[in-house]
Design a protein around this nucleic acid. Structure first.
Length: 500
RNA sequence: GCCGCGUUCGUCUAGCUGGCCCAGGACAUCAGGUUUUCAUCCUGAAGAUCAGGGGUUCGAAUCCCCUACGCGGUACCA
């Protein structure tokens, strides 16, 4: 049974890269009939941000990614929050020490900082490792009595890499990654605050929760050898590893960050987030009008592809087609235009009724009360030109409100001296068409234009300008039909008055 | 600095077991067409000497080596 996990730390809003990591875990699990669990890695209490955990849960709820086990749904391996599993980590750290896989270290952060500075000034780098641990303050160099004494104060537990060992990580995406134990530093496994670091907690939890595949970001690749060694030290079978390529910023290189989103004007987070400390607001995909299925589809293709030319894929299709072998090795730059395009595609697939219902909320907020089937009618008329739900309003406001400005460029280009006269006549023609009939109105107006040999482009654009305020929008007679002849008459009169 | 990972059109990528690739698709771009307008849509074009250099081979984007560049890591953070 395949069991995978997504294990974020609650240090703020969930980054879109994290969302993708979780998506791949989800697709992988679903494809293989396995389980996905959500574990909260909150071993660093100094970085805890209130609300972050709830944010994470809500984000996946919005996206439709469900978990089989986790903090919010429970499960047979509860608790799924590391701060609630504290007691067990100490035992595992002790086990490592007893078996010679780890040691106590008493050097203070300040002392180590001094060492680093020293080394730096000599163009060297200081590392707590095989080469230096025997000259530092730890249970390897101190007598048993001294160690006992020091254990009453602050201490950390460090991993003790064996000498002359080549460590191999088998990565499902990258193949074998090898490194010598002499190059690795003796990572802290257990901090002086009594909590484990990620490295220990992650390995212990993954094992006890029976995780079979660890699918995570590439930034973890350098510490994967440690994790492999930890499994070995405990005598456990290691899960399979797969390190995903990074999500890069759209311009230049480097990891996509919150700053890039602010700078380039696109969301880096699934949901809008308000920083509880500074009150700073970061935009989210949901609030920006993205459809969850579009975000999923777009994200899935950033670092993976089905091996053919298919791009539009529902979540079920993604599950069917997904495989880690097709995940690419290099980082993917975020493409805002492609994201827009996906949203447009998915928006077109929504029914008019569904969009109308959402759009109606916006209308009500703007103080516009109108029957739902009328809203639906408008939605049907403008949907195809809209990329985001919010644009429904900018593309259709003239259906509900009289224009209060008229595009000066259009006036300049199309509005002639005899325009008011023609518009008035057209207004009358439309009025006389009772009951109103779209097709007949169209024919009548065309006939008028023909008879009087008026430039059609000119008069039609002026008519449009009067009703819409600009040279945009769907079929004019659809607009007229929706507005009703009385309203059309009013708007023509108003336009003539204001433009003249 | 050291270690690791990576490098095909502007972007996401196809290409994985060498010949069907003078490299295919999509987004973006440009040009036409549709439309009374704008947008959508349709058609087409342009766009990568496969990072560079060496090999191996009858033949390499595909295999090997070197270099360059980029990124990641190098915390008592995850």
């Amino acid at each position: 049974m395949v069991r995978v996990r997504f294990a974020p730390s609650p240090t703020g809003p969930l980054h879109i890269g994290g969302v993708r990591t979780c998506l791949y875990n989800y697709l992988f699990a679903k494809k293989l009939g396995g389980k996905l669990l959500l574990r909260i890695e909150d071993t660093d209490q100094t970085r805890f941000v209130p609300g972050a955990e709830e944010y994470i849960v809500e984000s996946f709820k919005w996206l439709g990614i469900t978990f089989d086990e986790g903090v919010h749904v429970g499960g047979p391996f509860a608790p799924y929050k590391q701060s609630e599993r504290m007691a067990m980590y100490k035992e595992y750290a002790d086990y490592l020490i007893e078996n010679g896989w780890a040691y106590y270290a008493f050097d203070t952060p300040e002392e180590l900082e001094v060492k680093r500075k020293e080394a730096e000034s000599e163009k060297r780098t200081f590392q707590y490792d095989i080469n230096t641990r025997n000259s530092l303050c730890n249970s390897l160099t101190l007598t048993a009595e001294e160690v006992q004494e020091r254990l009453k104060g602050h201490f950390v537990v460090r991993f003790k890499y064996p000498e002359n060992l080549e460590i191999t990580v088998h990565d499902l995406i990258r193949g074998e990654v090898k490194i010598s134990s002499h190059l690795l530093d003796d990572k802290v496994l257990f901090k002086s605050d009594g909590l484990p670091t990620y490295h220990l907690a992650n390995v212990v939890d993954d094992h006890t929760m029976e995780i079979t595949h660890v699918i995570r970001g590439e930034e973890w690749l350098p510490s994967a050898p440690l994790h492999v060694m930890l499994y070995q030290a405990f005598g456990w079978d290691a899960p399979q590893f797969a390190h995903l390529p990074l999500l890069l910023k759209p311009d230049g290189n480097g990891k996509l960050s919150k700053r890039d989103g602010d700078r380039l004007g696109f969301p880096v987070f699934p949901l809008q987030w308000t920083d509880p400390k500074t009150g700073e607001i970061s935009s989210g995909y949901r609030e920006s009008g993205y459809l969850p299925e579009a975000v999923i589809n777009m994200l899935a293709l950033l670092g993976w592809n089905p091996g053919n030319d298919q791009e539009m894929m529902s979540i079920d299709q993604l599950i069917q087609l997904f495989s880690l072998e097709k995940v690419s090795k290099s980082g993917a730059k975020f493409d805002l235009d492609k994201a827009r395009w996906f949203n447009h595609q998915y928006l077109q697939m929504k029914s008019n009724a569904e969009l109308a219902e959402q759009f109606n909320h916006q209308l009500i907020e703007k103080g516009i009360q109108i029957s739902l089937d009328k809203v639906e009618k408008v939605v049907g008329l403008v949907k195809e030109r809209v990329h985001f739900i919010q644009e429904l309003w900018t593309q259709s406001s003239f259906f509900f409100l009289q224009p209060d400005t008229y595009n000066p460029d259009v006036i300049k280009k199309r509005w002639k001296e005899d325009t008011p006269q023609h518009l008035n006549t057209i207004s009358e023609i439309l009025m006389s068409s009772q009951p109103f009939d779209k097709a007949k109105a169209h024919d009548d107006v065309m006939a008028y234009i023909q008879e009087n040999q008026i430039n059609m482009g000119q008069i039609m654009n002026c008519l449009r300008l009067s009703l819409v305020g600009d040279s945009k929008g769907p079929d004019l007679f659809e607009i007229i039909d929706f507005l009703g002849t009385e309203e059309v008459g009013k708007r023509i009169a108003k336009a003539i008055q204001e433009i003249a």
